[in-house]
Structure formats: structure tokens, C-alpha cells
């Protein structure tokens, strides 16, 4: 597979926590400090810089800046662990943790411990976005009590990838939420069930029905799953599929984000059309027996 090389770029030098770092021009601060916590950042999407958990301190800047979107400039002095940065990250985690269910957010528990955050401190009366899970189709589930409003699903559904424009951010402020038009069920909306919104969701608010059901039944064991990357056989585009297999059953299909064909995206057939593999196999096995 040939990946076209970008033209050479000039390097800029910045300092991160006192250490000099050289980066190609146009890189972001995040490129220089990969261990920064991120939630709304997506490697296949334009940074929305909404969650503010990746903020760093840049000398000369009145406010903290989001590492995910701010471009590195020659001579920039960045602190990733100053008092202000730690305070902001801690509070952002507390504010999110107190209003949203972060139980299935990868990394959240570790960051909350690392920054000594206490989401309980706002008391029992603190407003949350808790609400019933939306199950209105057989393919994926929307549990907006876990939604941190990172805008990634909207961007993936919209002009950044899928161009279906089935979902949007509606309302304002704390009441803002992800919605179809007039909050119609997904089956009435423009959704094409590509599942690319699920792919980019950082918290598990969106999940495949298979995963949701297995989690509910307590049979979801991620550590036992194997991942096999193959090529989708439905059409001639040649998308990479990564099959997540548990107990010799396909439980989830994703696509590698660095794949030059898909950039992590698939269509309904590649993403959800795997059941025949299992059905066929059990049928054959039955015949053999």
C-alpha cells in the first residue's frame, strides 16, 4: 500500500515544560505532547476544542489554550503541568464527572485519579444529563446520559465524513443535546446507519447494539477479544474491516483510522452486515454434524 508523502515542511522549535521540541510547521501543540488527556479530539476529525481537558499554558497568553487545535509557533513556551493547567484539567473532569456518566469513557478514571478530581463535591443536588437510553433501531444505541457534547458524532455525520446530516446539536447551554430534526426517532431521520458516529464517540454514549446488549448481559469481555483486519467483500472500494471477535463470534466491526481508504469510516454493509458469517457457519456446522 503506497501512502503519498507530503511535501517537506519547515521545522519550528518550541519548548514543552522546558524541553526543546522540533515539529513540522503546521503541527499542533498536541503533536508535541502526546500524553495529554483528550476527549473531544479525534484523529480523523477537525479539532472542535470543546472539552477543554487538553488545555496547556502558553507563555504570553492570557487564557489557557487547547493543545489539540493550537498550532505550534516558533519560540512558543508551553507548560503542560503548571498549577493553572492542573487546576483547569481537574475542574473540567469534575464538571464533566458530576454531570455525565463517564463509566465507559476510556481514560476517564485514570485522569480523575491523576488530577485528584472529585466529581462528587458538587453534592447530590447537582444537575446532570441523566436520561433514558434511546433504543429505536437494531443496529446502535444512544445513551445520552453519557454524552459530553464533544460534537464528534455530528461532525462525522455531517460534512467532515458522511454527509448525511442526520444529527445536530440542538438547544443551548446545559440543555444542549444531540438530536435529529424535531427529535424524531432515528428511523425517521436521515440516518443511513453507517455507524461512523459510533466509531468516533469517546464515551460510549453511542454503542453498537451487539456491544450494548452484551454489556447489559455482562458477557462483554474486551480483554478476551481478538482483532483481525481484513478487506470488506461487499463492493470494490476495498475498505479495511477490523473484526472484533469474542468466543469465535464477531461482536463488533471497526476500521483502522490510518487506513487511507476509510479513515475509520464504513458503510452499513461493512459495519453491520456480518451476521451471515455466523449464521452461515452454524448452518454449515449443523450440516456436517
Amino acid at each position: 500500500m503506497s501512502v503519498p508523502l507530503p511535501p517537506p515542511r519547515r521545522l519550528v522549535e518550541i519548548t514543552v515544560d522546558g524541553e526543546p521540541v522540533r515539529l513540522p510547521e503546521g503541527s499542533t501543540i498536541l503533536d508535541a505532547c502526546q500524553d495529554t488527556p483528550t476527549l473531544c479530539y479525534g484523529d480523523t476529525l477537525t479539532p472542535k476544542n470543546a472539552c477543554r481537558v487538553c488545555v496547556v499554558e502558553v507563555e504570553g497568553s492570557r487564557t489557557l489554550v487547547p493543545a489539540c487545535s493550537r498550532r505550534a509557533e516558533e519560540g512558543m513556551k508551553v507548560s503542560t503541568d503548571s498549577e493553572r493547567v492542573r487546576h483547569s484539567r481537574k475542574l473540567v473532569l469534575e464538571l464533566l464527572g458530576s454531570s455525565v456518566d463517564l463509566s465507559t469513557t476510556p481514560g476517564a478514571a485514570e485522569w480523575i485519579a491523576e488530577y485528584d478530581a472529585d466529581p462528587q463535591r458538587f453534592g447530590q443536588e447537582a444537575a446532570t444529563v441523566e436520561q433514558p437510553v434511546k433504543v429505536d433501531n437494531d443496529l446502535y444505541v444512544r445513551d445520552y446520559g453519557k454524552c459530553i457534547m464533544c460534537y464528534k458524532c455530528v461532525d462525522a455525520c455531517g460534512d467532515q465524513w458522511q454527509n448525511s446530516f442526520a444529527i445536530t446539536v440542538a438547544g443551548r447551554g446545559f440543555d444542549s443535546h444531540i438530536s435529529t430534526e424535531h427529535d424524531a426517532p432515528l428511523t425517521d431521520s436521515a440516518c443511513v446507519y453507517c455507524g461512523n458516529c459510533v466509531e468516533v464517540c469517546p464515551t460510549g454514549a453511542l454503542s453498537f447494539k451487539t456491544e450494548f446488549d452484551m454489556r447489559a448481559a455482562g458477557t462483554w469481555h474486551e480483554e478476551e477479544q481478538t482483532q483481525t483486519t481484513t478487506i470488506c467483500a461487499y463492493c470494490g472500494v476495498g475498505c479495511n474491516l477490523t473484526l472484533h471477535v469474542q468466543d469465535n463470534e464477531i461482536v463488533k466491526v471497526t476500521s483502522p483510522h490510518d487506513n487511507p481508504v476509510t479513515h475509520g469510516n464504513l458503510c452499513i454493509k461493512g459495519r453491520f452486515g456480518f451476521q451471515h458469517v455466523q449464521n452461515g457457519r452454524s448452518a454449515k456446522q449443523t450440516q456436517k454434524d
Binding site: 470543546a50 475542574l91 454531570s99 457534547m149 446539536v169 447551554g173 446545559f174
Partner: peptide
């Protein structure tokens, strides 16, 4: 709280808290 657009966490949740 009413006028926060809701885009970023510090303002969206912070104004409520």
C-alpha cells in the same frame, strides 16, 4: 447559565455549578 452557548465544558457546566 441561560446564555451560555453550551459549546465548552467550563462554561456549559461551570455556569450551572
Amino acid at each position: 447559565r441561560d446564555e451560555s452557548c453550551g459549546q465548552c465544558v467550563p462554561c456549559r457546566v461551570g455556569t450551572v455549578r
